[in-house]
């Protein structure tokens, strides 16, 4: 264990154990759990503000340095305009919704479309790798799921959707559950390490 930051470590371990016990002993420590969670939510909300300030500071420095500062200037300008509009028109106001409907959603939807292109490109190049059994299973499964996702007007007589349903609800679910169980075990182990002070994301 690290010997540094003992006070921070003691606080982290203490409050973590209290919250954990409060989940299992709600009658005894329920009030403490609610209190601690409210404190945590307040800290996270304040951290959100700090993060926004950090974001602006980084881009402001980029504007000053001149290295591709145009994009950072657009970001800072957009932030300012959105802040002013939403603060003035409220989040559900007309202009706020206009910004969301005609700026936010199209931009993110376009990024999602690029994700689709990137995934198709990655799937096509998948066979360029040194293929093994698992990669072939992955590739064929992806094709079958795609084929069964929607009725193909030129494909008749083949129950692709039933095949997709079987793969998705039987085979994929089984594998997904196994992975999730392993992830859950990893989460438990990580939580134990944090409560024991071995993993300390806070350097103090």
């Amino acid at each position: 264990m690290k010997a540094k930051a003992p006070f921070s470590t003691a606080i982290a371990i203490g409050f973590g154990l209290l919250t954990l016990l409060a989940y299992f002993l709600p009658n005894l420590l329920g009030f403490l759990r609610d209190l601690l969670i409210e404190w945590a939510l307040g800290i996270v909300a304040f951290a959100l503000l700090i993060g926004v300030v950090n974001l602006l500071a980084v881009h402001w420095r980029k504007v000053r340095s001149g290295a591709k500062g145009v994009y950072s200037a657009v970001l800072i300008l957009s932030f300012a305009v959105t802040l002013i509009v939403v603060a003035w028109n409220k989040p559900t106001g007309q202009w706020s919704l206009w910004l969301f409907d005609y700026v936010q959603i199209p931009v993110e939807a376009s990024l999602m479309a690029v994700v689709a292109v990137a995934l198709i490109y990655a799937a096509a190049r998948l066979l360029r790798r040194r293929m093994n059994g698992m990669l072939w299973v992955f590739f064929i499964t992806a094709l079958l799921i795609l084929a069964g996702s929607a009725p193909l007007y030129f494909v008749q007589g083949v129950d692709l959707q039933g095949l997709r349903s079987f793969i998705a609800n039987a085979l994929a679910v089984a594998g997904a559950r196994g992975i999730l169980l392993g992830v859950a075990l990893g989460v438990v182990a990580t939580g134990v390490r944090i409560l024991l002070g071995a993993d300390r994301p806070y350097s103090g």
Binding site: G178, G182, V183
Partner: peptide, 17 residues
């Protein structure tokens, strides 16, 4: 997505290891 596109992927609990 990472399995198809990334060079090296950590599946499941390998990340936690």
């Amino acid at each position: 997505v990472l399995y198809a596109s990334a060079g090296e992927t950590l599946i499941g609990e390998e990340l936690f290891a």
